[in-house]
Design a protein around this nucleic acid. Structure first.
Lengths: 228, 228
DNA sequence: CACTTTCCGTAACAAAGTCACAAACCCGGT
DNA sequence: ACCGGGTTTGTGACTTTGTTACGGAAAGTG
């Protein structure tokens, strides 16, 4: 790892300055900078215990998956976001499996779970930060839960399309019906039907694997209350 | 608060022995023993900041509620369980509203949120315990999410009925269709339809506000994979 | 008992999920 | 350019779940 990268890692960790010099060194020497291609899975349920994760560049989606293979995204990670659940082995009370996939080409740091765990057990600022992070993800999941509970699929899809356009910084987004279904925890056919409706109404134009947003306002009105 | 109650509170808090004498005294003097009648709501979304909660006796359900009034239970609290979310004001990253209701006549302690918050900020064991607790509730919620995502309503209802029977320690449980619907996040009519089916199949016998389990094995088979 | 409230049953319809299959599209190889 | 195989989308038929709108039965109250 180069000096430049080290410096940046420190910037990304809010508690870094509060650590002792030995702890800082521990982190520096047990952090890997990694790279993921678009679509690459970096964490698969309980198959591994990767470590504490910091997004340097790019975007990830965290999702759960049922035995039958049905997926739903529970939260997203963007630049500077961090996640504990790829290191669930260091938390004895966590017994769910989460999957993580790069939404685009991404760079991320991984702090060794053993090192982070030990640090957490001995440093109040780190433990506090960990707690804040957990609370933050908790809120994400609760938000998702509320959406599932109370919003109809057309509203959720409209919100999702707007977010994707926002993320990509373009009117046209790269997205198959299958992908949207996985995000929202529904079936591909349901998305197809709604896309057909959205097209008929002139909200979007679609071609294979692409969706172009035509009427932002109409989608916005539909999505009302489902936007973060 | 009598000597006897104080002694018991200490038994319920795993980190108590690790505290300084002044911190112990802080907790002792800022904890109230409270009582709730069956059906009583002890926490309503963001209306209050009750404090850190410890169940002494009884049972609570924590649920979320949509704008339209649709509810779903996200986790339960039993004897010795604790909960942070009635003190969400001390966590800046928590921005969801949770409601809590006594499922039966219950006794519980409430530690003042300010005192708990301060203690947490200064004591590593308390912060660690808080973190464990958060992780534990997180797991509960993720479990609920998976159920919603992948289990059909009949399986979820079967599982719920068996749990209720387990909790009450009896074959006959006190439960209206409305109550079951609120637990599972569905509509009363859906429960009615399924109860009718369960009765026709001879799984249960029902009368107004009561359900008696007749065929435990059949329900168990249905519920397979939806039992905690 | 009459009256009110709560609980349950049900029909009719809408939304969403499942299953099955076919058509359209894209890409690489010839 | 054409062919072939994989991927993506379209669609119909059907099931399950959610919604709306009732009415009636059961329990509680004065």
């Amino acid at each position: 790892m180069t000096q430049k990268e080290e410096t940046m890692l420190e910037d990304y960790l809010p508690f870094f300055e509060e650590l002792s010099e030995t702890d800082k060194e521990q982190i520096r020497s047990h952090t890997r900078l990694m790279h993921a291609e678009k679509g690459e899975m970096i964490h698969k349920g309980n198959e591994d215990c990767l470590g504490f994760l910091i997004v340097k560049k790019g975007q990830f989606r965290s999702y759960i998956i049922s035995e039958e293979g049905k997926e739903i995204t529970v939260y997203r990670l963007f630049e500077r976001d961090m996640c504990l659940f790829a290191a669930s082995c260091i938390f004895r009370n966590i017994d769910f499996d989460i999957w993580m996939e790069a939404k685009e080409e991404s760079d991320y740091w991984v702090i060794d779970p053993g090192v982070y765990g030990k640090l957490m057990e001995t440093s109040l600022p780190v433990m506090k930060y960990t707690n804040d992070l957990m609370a933050s993800r908790f809120s994400d999941v609760m938000w998702t839960m509320e959406q599932i509970l109370s919003k109809s699929m057309d509203k959720r899809l409209a919100a999702f399309l707007m977010e994707e356009a926002e993320n990509e910084g373009a009117e046209e987004i790269t997205l198959t019906h299958e992908m949207a279904a996985r995000e929202l925890g529904t079936a591909r056919e349901v998305i197809s039907r709604m896309m057909k409706y959205f097209q008929q109404e002139g909200f979007v134009a679609a071609s294979r694997g692409k969706v172009r947003i035509l009427d932002k306002n109409a989608l916005y009105e539909l999505a009302e209350g489902s936007l973060r």
